[in-house]
Amino acid sequence: MIPFAWNVVLAMVWVVLTANLSATNALFGFVLGYAAIALMQRQFPALHGYAQRVPRFIGFLFFYAWEMIKANARVAHDVVTPEWQMRPGVIAIPLEAKTDGEITVLANLISLTPGTLSLDVSTDRQVLYIHAMYLDDEVELLESIKDLERRVLEVMR
């Protein structure tokens, strides 16, 4: 979070120095700030790993957008066709995420995709209970959620 704040500050400095408040210029300033931080990060412990995290984050955004589109299309198709193809159910997902923040982000991302809805976390925080619409292949569903979790943790840790 701190390196990101620095990056935003550097972008703002760039905007002020060039006296040009447009979205393209701000974005260019952000890219320049990112390059500066990427060069400096070895010397400053607070900045460690930032240069690797930004491309991962952008990659994650694309991955998640694609998942969203697929899930939306599936649910929409099921809603408009007469027979139900869904086999809904509540299943338990073992959690890799440990802290409150990680579990919150993961649960919300799971809830945001149609077809999966997080219901609750067990009291000992080992397991996340989700309601899923398509349980034809439980192993596949479990794997796709573990994949999502792995990517989330990669970005957050």
Partner: peptide, 10 residues
């Protein structure tokens, strides 16, 4: 829940 629900682990 709907009667078509296949599983409820909770």
């Amino acid at each position: 829940l709907w009667e078509g629900t296949v599983k409820d682990e909770l």
